[in-house]
Write a protein that binds this DNA or RNA. Structure first.
Length: 660
DNA sequence: AAGGAGGGTTTTTTT
DNA sequence: AACCCTCCTT
């Protein structure tokens, strides 16, 4: 493999250090993914069996790409494939074999984001004091923080910070109790249970420690406490751990990621070697100058300054528009001219924004301008109502204990089981600690529910059982089985009834077809497909990867995505839009601690450093919010990027002119 | 039980 | 503007 000659000396050094703890501090665009891939290939070339290297990535898609690249580097022929996976997927593999030791069912279900939210909503019922209450999303964040700190529901009362937390404790207990009863775990549980397994069962830990000679972690700046503990445990015998990351790109603090892990690596792993990659091959000097100037305003970071290797053809542009609509019009008009007029490839252009509400205007404009686009992530496939319905059907079929999924679809489409019947059944089920469908006979005998509802419920239970058998018996025909199920419940008719416009009907049915297709794909690429493995994939894959949406990034069209989704990607031309106080930095970070602003600044830094040749930063002087127009202030980051901090006058912005 | 009207609330980011 | 919840009519 004399491909090593393609690497610069620093990169080569990182690749060639093959044992002991190693921290690769890699700035944006310095070839960090390249280093970690080459390193894996080099270890294999020198004799480490591929399956004895564990590489951890941030997303499933990154995992797949790294697997492919490594294999390609080694000439495409490998008897065993290296194990590349996310922390979560790794934990699922471990738990699938060992979770019964912790008293969980072997066929545990994984709650995805939507399930977690419903569970939180359910746990919050009647939990309020005066007008103090919690929103489900906030509660989940609170619970997650407790979990990361190792606080269990029973002991949470001692870790309350204020009165509101007391309410959260009540909800936390219910939430965890309901999950347990449903035989389900959430994302944090995947990590925590694996950790618990390692801590309580020395033999299990020893077995998994013995599986790997080397561990590599990408995006190390985004590891949380549980992930750190897992890694530490896994590499304890040999300490062959290579982590790669950039503290300036840590943007998941709100999810429990702790920059301290990358800042303190040498303390956690004494004797660790450190390699810094500061040669940036991605962006022009103009773009990098702005990025450097911006991020210098953060404290508590590894000092590094990126050196540009590309010359700019033009300066970074800062544009101000009258309102958010004009902003979208302006940006899209320019893009249309680039794509249609100058033959620029649409895939080389990205529009990056802070929140998921922002792309709507751009979608409208792009459609009107006839420019193809791909919305990456965003209102994900999994958030669509149809997908949630179908997933609930499959979950209720696969997991008879999963009352939450059952309740979602018990009367969808309407089959004569009304809210009052459902409520009575739920009360009884909770009271007796049984499943909803199991209390139906008693409720019917005591005339609690109507005869009509009773019959409908019996029919529904029979339906689930019949399809449970059918899915289990013919796993390779699951897609067909689902179609049969949809026919039987009249799902298409339900859609046609709910959405009178043929346009909408088609769009909704397309989602259903995509879902069926994703099952087909799962069957094709899985050795032993089953409803359970499919649901597992669906929960883990989340919004990235080619699930249903058939690999967003391979489609043609300009890219629309949030700054978070843009991590790890690069584009020749980037439009970074909505640089306004309250949006970037986001309002919620302004009321939080100082560190919150720094994370917003890093987010902005990530956005800027995605750009290779041309960067355009825009803002709107007023913006619609909740149907109302409100004036805005320029983002403080604009001043910082342009080196105008401290000036009282607003900076001059280029007049935005309509193009074309 | 079903469906529609009206009113109130909402938006940070995601494995 | 979009969603969810509640209440009212059928």
């Amino acid at each position: 493999m004399d491909r090593l000659s393609e690497l610069n000396p620093r990169q080569r050094e990182a690749v060639l250090i093959s044992s002991g703890p190693l921290l690769v501090l890699a700035g944006a665009g310095t070839g960090k993914t390249r280093v970690i891939t080459y390193r894996m290939a080099e270890l294999i070339r020198r004799g480490t069996p591929p399956e004895r290297i564990l590489s951890v990535t941030f997303t499933n898609k990154a995992a797949r790409e790294m697997r492919e690249r490594t294999t390609a580097l080694l000439g495409g022929k490998l008897r065993r494939r290296p194990l590349v996976s996310t922390f979560h997927a790794f934990c699922v593999r471990v738990l699938r074999q060992e979770i019964e030791r912790l008293g969980y069912p072997a066929k545990f279900a994984i709650y995805d984001r939507g399930d977690q939210e419903s569970a939180a909503r359910k746990a919050l019922r009647d939990v309020r004091l005066g007008d103090e209450t919690w929103r489900p999303g906030d509660l989940l964040a609170r619970i997650s923080r407790w979990k990361m700190a190792g606080v269990r529901p029973s002991g949470a009362m001692e870790h309350t910070e204020d009165d509101r937390d007391v309410l959260a404790v009540v909800a936390y207990r219910r939430y965890q109790g309901n999950l347990r009863a449903a035989g389900a775990v959430d994302f944090d549980d995947l990590l925590l249970l694996t950790l618990e397994l390692f801590q309580q069962h020395a033999d299990v830990l020893a077995r998994h420690q013995g599986r790997f000679d080397h561990v590599q972690i990408d995006e190390y700046q985004d590891t949380n406490a549980a992930q750190f503990a897992l890694v530490e445990a896994l590499v304890r015998p040999h300490r062959n751990l290579c982590v790669v990351g950039d503290d300036d790109q840590s943007i998941y603090g709100w999810r429990g990621a702790e920059v301290e892990h990358i800042l303190g690596f040498q303390t956690h792993f004494p004797g660790a070697r450190v390699v810094r990659l500061e040669d940036n091959y991605r962006s022009t000097d103009a773009i990098l100058e702005i990025a450097n100037r911006l991020v210098r305003h953060n404290r508590g970071r590894h000092e590094k300054s990126l050196v540009a290797h590309r010359r700019a053809q033009g300066p970074v542009r800062f544009l101000a528009f009258e309102d958010d609509l004009k902003e979208a019009e302006g940006v899209v008009a320019e893009i249309r001219e680039l794509v249609n007029g100058r033959g620029v490839s649409p895939e080389s252009i990205a529009i990056l924004f802070r929140t998921n509400e922002q792309p709507r205007v751009y979608e409208q404009e792009l459609r009107r301008a006839g420019v193809r686009y791909v919305l990456v992530g965003g209102q994900s496939f999994f958030d669509r109502r149809e997908v949630r319905d179908l997933l609930a059907y499959l979950k209720a079929i696969s997991q008879p204990d999963d009352d939450m999924s059952l309740l979602r679809i018990i009367n969808t489409p309407a089959r004569g089981i009304g809210t009052s019947s459902i409520e009575k059944l739920m009360k009884r089920a909770v009271r007796e600690g049984r499943r909803v469908l199991d209390v139906v006979p008693d409720a019917a005998r005591e005339r609690e529910i109507s005869r009509r509802a009773h019959e409908a419920l019996d029919g529904f239970r029979e339906l689930l059982q019949r399809y449970r058998a059918r899915f289990a018996d013919e796993p390779r025909r699951m897609d067909r089985t689902l179609i049969a199920l949809l026919d039987e419940i009249g799902y298409r008719a339900e859609i046609e009834r709910q959405y009178p416009q043929p346009e909408q009907q088609q769009a909704r049915m397309a989602v259903v077809e995509q879902f069926v297709d994703s099952i087909k794909q799962h069957i094709e690429r899985t050795e032993e497909p089953s409803l359970e493995t499919f649901l597992e994939d669906a929960a883990l894959v989340g919004r990235d990867e080619d699930f249903g949406a058939s690999d967003e990034l391979s489609q043609s069209g300009i890219r629309l995505m949030t700054l978070h989704s843009a991590k790890g990607l690069e584009f020749p031309r980037v439009y970074l839009v909505g640089l306004e106080e309250g949006l970037l930095p986001h309002h919620r970070s302004l009321i939080g601690p100082d560190t919150a602003i720094e994370e917003e600044r890093r987010l902005c830094y990530v956005g800027v450093t995605r750009a290779m040749q041309e960067l355009t930063v825009t803002r709107a002087e007023s913006r619609m919010k909740w149907g109302r127009r409100k004036p805005t202030l320029p983002s403080r980051f604009l001043y910082e990027m342009r080196g105008e901090v401290g000036e009282i006058e607003a900076p001059e912005f280029d007049e935005a002119e309509a193009v074309g």
